[in-house]
Each structure stands twice: as structure tokens, then as C-alpha cells.
Computed example of a mutant assay.
Amino acid sequence: MLRALKTAALGMTAQQLNVDVIANNLANVNTTGFKKSAIEFQDLLYENLQLGDRDGRRGHENPVKLQIGLGSRPINTFRSFTRGDVVQTGNSLDLAINGRGFFQVQLADGNYAYTRDGSLKINSEGYLVTNSGLKIVPEIAIPDNVSSIQISENGLVTVMIDGENEPQEIGQIELVTFMNPAGLLARGGNLFSVTEASGEPIFGLPNEQGFGGVMQGYLEKSNVDVAQEMINLIVAQRAYEINSKSVKTADELLALINNLKR
């Protein structure tokens, strides 16, 4: 009975973590560029009560083993980088990536991070920055007296300056991909950092092979499917309940054993 109590307790812990992950997905359903996660589990070691070896007493081999599992454990959280819905905003500094790729930004400590959030702004120095004030890399400075900003699907940035008849090229947006984007480390603020699992960043231009194009005036929303997450939440809740029922059942059996001598 003690085995059942421990196994059920591990199941309850696993499902609690599952609910935590689902809750985070639902909390970020309106977060620009957010990528949903799903927790993955593995079964634990098994107790071998009877192996499938040849039984000398009966003269034949047992076709199967007698094993009792000892529960499950969370092994990782897999982040899905499927593209979310793209919505039109009409803002010339809103950018969505139509395909693979990330924008690269520079952090305050000089390191780099990567994001799918293309809601850009212009800071007091004229540089294109994220909502958090981080400069995109390579840096793009917007001149004074600009009447319009155009960003092509290939990432070329041109502006019309008051008093001039021809557009002026001021920069080129670059994108970054990874061999294993699911291995990136989420650090909050719609940012990801490189890890050994993700591999080193691969740089390229929008619309090149392996890189998506840039869509001006659009934003990529979260890829969270609310209906599916609600289903997942119900399944996790029921799994938690049935594990708690296992605890109660094991406790009742222990109580029966304790009362046998009365």
C-alpha cells in the first residue's frame, strides 16, 4: 500500500506542474509572439517482481515479466514554435515574421537575445527598439523629419524625408534561426537566450532560404489555442483527481489491514 501512496503522490505532483504550464499558456493568450509550452513526462523505474526467465520448476520460459511501476516524473517543457495568427495593425513599425526566424536584440549587459515580438518603437535617440527599449541588431537609426517609413518583405528599411523626392535607404533588418529553437531558454519579456541545446544562431536576411519574410503593419499573436488548452486543463484536473482517489483508496486499504486483528 505504501507503494501506491508514493506513486499517487508523484502523479499528483506531475499533474500540478501540468496545470501550472497550462495556466501560463492561458495567461499569455494575448501576448505578442508568445509560444505555448507543454510539459512532457517519463515513467520511473520499475520493481521487478518476476522476470521472464526460464522457470526451472515448470521447465518453460515465462512469456512476460511481472513489474510494478513507481510513478512518473516531468522531464521537460516542450515549447512549440508554430506560427500564431497574424493580425493587421496599420502601424508602420509593427513587424511580423512570415515563417522561420527571430529578431535579434541587444541586452543592457551587452549580450544578445531573440524575439518574435515585432512591435517596434523609436527611442529618444532615433533607434528602432522593442517595447522594453532594447535596440534591434543591426542598429537602425531613423533620421529627423521623416514623413513615412517603409520596410520591404526582404527587410530593407527606407524612409521619405520631408523636402526630398526619393526614398532613402537607412538599414537592413536581419533575422536569426536555430537548429533547435525548442532548446532556447525563455527569459521573460518575450525574449529567448541561446543554449547548448538550441545551437548557435544562424544569421540571414528575410526571404532567404530558411528565413521568413517580414510583414510591415502586422503582428504575430500568441499561438495558444484557448479551446485546446481548456481541454488539456480538464484532462489534467481529472488526472489529479484520480490520483488523489488512489491515495484515498490506499489509505482505506491500510485502515482495513490495521483493523484485521480487532
Rank of each mutant, 00 (worst) to 15 (best):
L107G: 12
L107K: 15
L107F: 07
A108I: 10
A108H: 11
A108D: 15
D109A: 02
N111E: 07
A113Y: 02
Y114A: 03
Y114K: 05
T115V: 02
T115C: 05
D117N: 13
S119P: 02
S119E: 12
E125A: 14
G126T: 10
G126H: 11
Y127V: 05
Y127A: 10
Y127I: 04
L128G: 10
L128F: 12
V129I: 06
V129L: 12
N131R: 14
S132N: 14
G133F: 13
G133N: 13
L134N: 11
L134W: 05
K135V: 02
K135H: 13
K135W: 09
V137S: 08
P138R: 01
A141Y: 11
I142K: 02
P143E: 03
P143H: 03
S147L: 09
I149R: 05
Q150L: 09
Q150F: 09
I151N: 06
I151K: 09
S152T: 15
S152P: 03
E153Y: 00
E153L: 04
G155I: 06
G155N: 03
I161A: 03
E164Y: 11
E166C: 00
P167Y: 04
Q168K: 14
E169I: 08
I170R: 02
G171S: 07
G171E: 13
Q172F: 06
I173E: 02
I173A: 02
I173N: 00
E174N: 12
E174W: 02
L175Y: 00
L175P: 00
V176R: 01
T177S: 13
M179R: 15
M179V: 15
P181C: 09
P181E: 04
G183R: 07
G183T: 06
L184V: 00
L185K: 14
A186E: 12
G188F: 11
G188I: 03
L191C: 08
L191K: 11
